Amino acid sequence: MDAAAIDQLQVIVDDQSRLGIAAILFVMMFSVALTLRLTDFALVRQQPVRVLGGVLAQLIGLPLLTLGLILMLSPPASIALGMLVVASCPGGNISNLLTRAAGGNTAYSVTLTAISSVSAAVMTPVSILVWSRLYPPVDALVEALHVDPMPFFVQTALLLAVPLALGMALNAWKPVLAERMGRVLGPLGLSCIALLVLVGIVQNWPIFLAAGAVIIPIVVLHNSAAFALGWLGGRAMGMEAARRRALTFEVGIQNAGLGLVILLSQFDGVGGAAAIIGTWSIWHLIGGSLLAGLFRWSDSRTLRANAKERKT
């Protein structure tokens, strides 16, 4: 499938579907906010330089890296849009789970996730608008979709900020209730996104099959580069291995479900972008799990080597 054909792909979203997507977005961000506590931000005061460095790697470094990949690969405009939307999304709780599984610094991971989640209400729409302007084909695509920057920013910010504020307020007021609700709403939000991706793939299977040769390599390269940026960023800041691993997953694992919902609700369901984000939402779990396994394998190998040296 050539570039022109990919850019013509579109996921049809009617008014009822938009309401459903908005409800999914609310549940997603509300469930994220239910897990946020003031203690999650404690490292900001204790280790401000490392926290700031990690935040900048997420909010500035990843979109900048993405723009560099786009300029190097010159993908179709819709695919470039999908890459920029993913890079503009905050991290997710899955990064905390993978950090723990990899033997990383979970407290650092939780702090970065909390900051990126709270700042998403402003930073995600701003980042999408700013970075999309820097690649002319994407800028032209956004113009063709008649995306008015101010309404887009206001609508997206409100859709993200309201459930975040309500969830954090409930957690501060009734933490036990918030924890119980989070146990239900967290998996529910993930299930809705998984269902959304699955239905989209099934309904558009011929399209995904035809475009897969273009989309899958780009997603794998993009995600691998994001993981590498996190690891190299941690190394450049002189972090120990556990903290480097945390930053690796924070930069490489993005809330792609949020990106998909924003795309479908605000960008008329551009098919190439939806394919990129949907594929990312599956692949980053595979890539992240493989990377966590690699880290643990490395640890076990080191332990065996140390034990062998002690015996000799």
Rank of each mutant, 00 (worst) to 15 (best):
L52G: 09
R235P: 08
A4Q: 11
V138K: 03
D7F: 04
I207E: 14
M72A: 15
A157N: 09
G259F: 00
V86E: 03
L232E: 01
F26P: 06
V44K: 01
I60E: 04
H284I: 07
V110Y: 02
P90S: 05
E309Y: 10
I79Y: 00
L247F: 06
M237T: 12
V130W: 09
L198N: 12
A165T: 13
V122I: 15
D299S: 12
V13H: 02
T111N: 06
V27L: 11
I94C: 09
L260V: 02
V51F: 05
A274I: 00
S109W: 03
A236G: 07
D7I: 00
Q10G: 08
L52D: 08
T312E: 14
L196K: 00
L260N: 04
I79G: 04
A3Y: 09
A101Y: 13
L264D: 04
A236Y: 11
D14C: 07
A157Q: 07
G271H: 03
G92Q: 01
R235K: 14
V138G: 02
V202S: 12
P75K: 05
L59R: 01
A256T: 03
R244A: 12
L36V: 10
K174Q: 13
R304Y: 14
T302Y: 14
S132C: 14
L258T: 08
L260Q: 01
K311M: 15
A228P: 08
P48Y: 02
A87H: 02
G61I: 00
G230I: 07
R243T: 14
A22N: 07
S88I: 06
L43C: 08
S119L: 15
D40L: 10
I128Q: 00
G91C: 05
A87D: 01
R304A: 15
V219R: 06
H222E: 11
S116I: 09
M239Y: 10
V154K: 08
A140C: 10
V162T: 09
I277M: 06
G167A: 06
T156I: 08
V142E: 00
S127F: 04
W280K: 00
A273E: 05
A4L: 13
L69N: 01
M239C: 08
Y135S: 07
I6N: 01
K308H: 15
P125T: 01
A194T: 13
I6C: 04
I262E: 05
D299I: 12
R18W: 08
P136I: 07
T302D: 13
G212Q: 03
A77V: 01
T302I: 13
G103C: 05
I207L: 14
F227W: 06
L62R: 00
K308N: 14
S31N: 09
A120H: 05
L34P: 08
A169N: 12
A140Y: 07
G238P: 10
V261S: 07
H222R: 03
P75Y: 01
L73E: 05
A114R: 00
L229Q: 05
A42H: 11
L159S: 11
V49C: 08
S300N: 12
T113W: 04
L38N: 11
A292I: 05
L52N: 07
L185E: 09
